[in-house]
Amino acid sequence: MASRITIEVTRYNPARDPEPRMTSYEVPLHREWVVLDALNCIKDHLDGSLTFRWSCRMGVCGSCGMMINGVPKLACATFLSDYAPGPVRVEPMRHFPILRDLVVDTSDFLMKLARSKPWIIRTVEKPADEEHIQTPAQLEEYRQFSMCINCLLCYAACPIYGLDPQFTGPAAIALAQRYNMDSRDEGASERLDSLSNREGIWGCMFVGECTQVCPKHVDPAGAIQQYKLTAATEWLKAMVLPRGAK
């Protein structure tokens, strides 16, 4: 294995630069080094102004999503050695405004997440010391969708979101579906009202890339297609059944 590798990183300071540019750095290539280690090496020893987010370094905090050789990936879970002899191209996540270098503005997602009402909605609360019974099978219904770490790689992979920033997007819809499928929840129709529209589930054209890039195997594409099926069934029921019979 070569002992060093070149890494090309997007540099951009909106206060100063007219547009983003690529800068190359040479870093040591170790078997256990991930792209994030290369970035930290640059920041610690070569250029302290290189800007990126990171925290847990074990693929669960969701901070370090980036485009690595054009593919959305977590920098902490992407080995440099997989790209030897290099160079490795590291860019900010696509489809988001760049704040600085590799840091993008994700506040749009937070807004959309809140609109999906990702919390348990019930008409009557259980007493404080009483649990809901939920069988392992019922847990399995939504468990996969509850694994979302909000890393937003799925937004970077979704061309629909790139073309239409109004689109609610994969993670926020998958999390709505996570609560819809939870046996403790009674808020499905409330959520459907805010998501069964062109900005919501019907905006999805099923490109399927969100599922491909998801580091947690959430399958947002599947979630959205299932949501569409539910929405269509509800619509049909409303058309066919007389009022009040639902």
Binding site: W119, I120, E125, K126, A128, D129, E130, E131, H132, I133, Q134, T135, P136, Q138, L139, Y142, R143, S146, Y179, D182, R184, D185
Partner: peptide, 16 residues
Amino acid sequence: MRLEHWGCPWSREPDG
């Protein structure tokens, strides 16, 4: 238990 009411996916026994 409060977390349970808020939706935390606690692992379950076969009886739920």
